[in-house]
């Protein structure tokens, strides 16, 4: 049983696999350059004090992106 939800809705501490990245242009390139591609496992490790941006753990490193950037990514839990 798996559901597809926007990355924004992932809670801190929750893990998921990326199902789709819909960003194009510069943002799309940046996201892919950082290894955020379908199939990659991500875990939300924290949110900034104002709930935005969000910190994500991928294999071996942590990166942060803004909520409106996370909206271009859906994940499977």
């Amino acid at each position: 049983m798996s559901t597809i939800i926007p990355l924004r809705e992932l809670q801190v501490g929750q893990k998921a696999h990326i199902s789709q990245v819909t960003a194009s242009g510069e943002l799309g390139r940046r996201i892919r350059d950082m290894g955020l591609i379908p199939g990659a496992e991500v875990e939300v490790t924290g949110r900034a004090p104002l709930r935005d941006p969000v910190a994500l753990r991928l294999t071996g490193f942590t990166l942060s992106l803004r909520n409106n950037e996370a909206d271009h990514i859906t994940v499977e839990i």
């Binding site: 996201i31 955020l36 941006p53 490193f61 942060s64």
Partner: peptide, 10 residues
Amino acid sequence: ATPFVMELPP
């Protein structure tokens, strides 16, 4: 805005 996507190095 330039995409923020940024590494948080250890």
